[in-house]
């Protein structure tokens, strides 16, 4: 229960940050990706602003034995890149450019995103549902 309460607070803070920063506005996101159009650098400030506190948090975590609510910190990042990281990032980037929404902002804007937002979220959920099956096929192809 306590974990859920803190998770709710983190999700709320994340969502408000996405709204304030402009990440839920697809024209701003596409303006950032559109380097040959009227380029909008705002997202660089968003990413920079987000990385700063998180970089501090990783340093603090390295000095602590466990998170405040117990359990363990996430393991060190996997050093191997792998084909799924590359292929997945290409597909994700293409979809992000096409519609201007990534998963966090798609959820944060659910209440005001209209039909388009709902359809996007449904398609994204469908994509997430089929990915485990797709991943094992891709891995078999890559191993062959």
């Amino acid at each position: 229960m306590v974990r859920a309460i803190y998770a709710f607070v983190a999700g709320s803070l994340f969502g408000v940050g996405l709204l304030v920063s402009g990440m839920t506005d697809t024209t701003r996101v596409q303006g950032w990706l559109d380097v040959f159009g009227a380029w909008d650098p705002t997202l660089a400030f968003v990413l920079g602003g987000a990385i700063l506190p998180m970089a501090v948090a990783w340093r603090v975590a390295a000095r602590r034995r466990a998170p405040a609510l117990g359990g363990a910190f996430p393991p060190a990042p996997e050093p191997k890149l792998g084909h799924n990281l590359v292929l997945g990032s290409v597909l994700f980037g293409a979809g992000w450019g096409l519609a201007g929404l990534c998963p966090g902002p798609a959820m944060a804007s659910l209440t005001w995103g209209g039909t388009g937002g709902l359809v996007f979220l449904a398609a994204m959920a469908a994509g997430m549902l089929v990915t485990p099956g797709l991943r094992s096929r891709i891995d078999r192809l890559a191993a062959a």
């Binding site: 803190y6 803070l13 940050g17």
Partner: peptide, 16 residues
């Protein structure tokens, strides 16, 4: 907004 996002991520790591 980015700072808020980063604080949310920092909290989720250090608390949860």
């Amino acid at each position: 907004g980015g700072l808020l996002i980063g604080c949310a991520a920092a909290m989720f790591l250090l608390v949860n």
